[in-house]
Write a protein that binds this DNA or RNA. Sequence first.
DNA 1: CTTATAATTAGTAGCAGGTACTAAAATAAA
DNA 2: TTTATTTTAGTACCTGCTACTAATTATAAG
Lengths: 183, 183
Amino acid sequence: MSTSAKEKRQQQLIEIIETDPFVTDEVLSEKLKVSIQTIRLDRMALAIPELRIRIKDVARNNYDKVRTLKKSEIVGELIDLDLNQQGISLLQTDETMAFERTKIIKGHYIFAMAESLALAVIDARVAITGVANLKYAVPVKAGEQLKAKAKVTMIRGKEYFVHVFITVKDQPVFRSKFILKTL
Amino acid sequence: MSTSAKEKRQQQLIEIIETDPFVTDEVLSEKLKVSIQTIRLDRMALAIPELRIRIKDVARNNYDKVRTLKKSEIVGELIDLDLNQQGISLLQTDETMAFERTKIIKGHYIFAMAESLALAVIDARVAITGVANLKYAVPVKAGEQLKAKAKVTMIRGKEYFVHVFITVKDQPVFRSKFILKTL
DNA sequence: CTTATAATTAGTAGCAGGTACTAAAATAAA
DNA sequence: TTTATTTTAGTACCTGCTACTAATTATAAG
C-alpha cells in the first residue's frame, strides 16, 4: 500500500463523514475495508472528532441556527420604529445566504428583509396583497451589511402603502413598494 | 414530600430540558436538589429519553431541516423545463413556512419559489436586476401546494424578461415579472 | 402511634462509542 | 536485506447512561 492509498482513503473518509456525520468508526472500517484502529488514526490525522462530538456539533449549530433563523436572522434586526410611520432594520449577510460561486446574496433574503420590515411598521394582522417596482440596483455580496428603511406613504381604509429602501453603505441596492391589507 | 412536590419537580424538569436539551442528569439532579436516580425515574415516567438520544434527535431534525430548506424546499421541485423558454415547479407548503397565528405562508417563500424558477429557466450566471408587478392575489394557506409557471417573454442582449405565475389548484395567487441580467 | 404505601436514594453490572496508550505484524522503500 | 512506514491488535479507562435489586425515608391511613 503506497502513501497515496492512505491519502485516497482519508479523502474518502472525509467525504463519507461530510455526507453522513452520523456514521460510526465501525461502519467506516467496513466501508473502507480497514480496521477500526486505522480509521481512528485517520480521524486523528484529519482532526475529525468522534461521532458523539460530531452529533453534538450538528445539534448545537442547527439548534442555534434554527432559533436565530426563525427569529430574526432572515429578517434583520429592528433598530428604529415609529408605528404606522417608519422603521429601520439591519441585516448582516454571510455566505450561507449567497450563491456559492458568485457570493451574491440570494434575492429572497433581501426580499424577506424588506417584507418583514414592511410588516413590522404596520403592527397589525396584515397580508401582503401587492408589491410593485421591486428593483435591485446592485447585487449584494456576502458579508455586506444591509440597512432597510421603510416609510408608510399612504393609508387608505384597510390598505397601507409602504416603501422600503435598502442600502449598503448608503449605496441603494433595492427599493420596493408594498401594499398591505389588514385582515 | 407530597405527591404535588413530585409533580412540580417533573414539571420543572420538562421546562429545563425544553429550554436546554443538552443538560445531563447530573446537572438536573443538582438543579432540582434530588438524587440522580430520582431524575432518572422522573425521565422514565415522563418518557424523556437520555441526553445522547436527545442530542441525536436535535441533530437529525435540524440536519434534515436545514438540508431540505437550503436545497430545494425553499425553492420547489422542478418538474418541467425548456431552457430559455419555460419551466414549471411545485412547492408543498407547510406550517413552518407560515405565520403562526394566521397560517398564511410568508411572502418570501413564494418569492423564493418564483425567483429560483426564473433563475432556473435562464441557465446562466445571472443576477436579478429588477422585478415588477409582483402581486399576491390571494393569501396562501399552509398545506397548499404551489405550482409555478415561468415563461421567458423576451431576450434583449444580456437581459432576460421572465414572467412567473403561481397558482393553487389553478387559482392564481401570485404573478411577477423578473428582469435578469447575465454576468 | 403504628403500619402500609409511596417516594427517594444507593449500589451494581453492563453498554456504546469512543480515547490513549503499547506493542506486534504487515507492507513499502532504501 | 534492512530500515521505515503503515496497519492491526489489545488493553485500561471514560461518559452518560439503562436495567435491575435493595435499602432507606417520607407520607398518609387506620
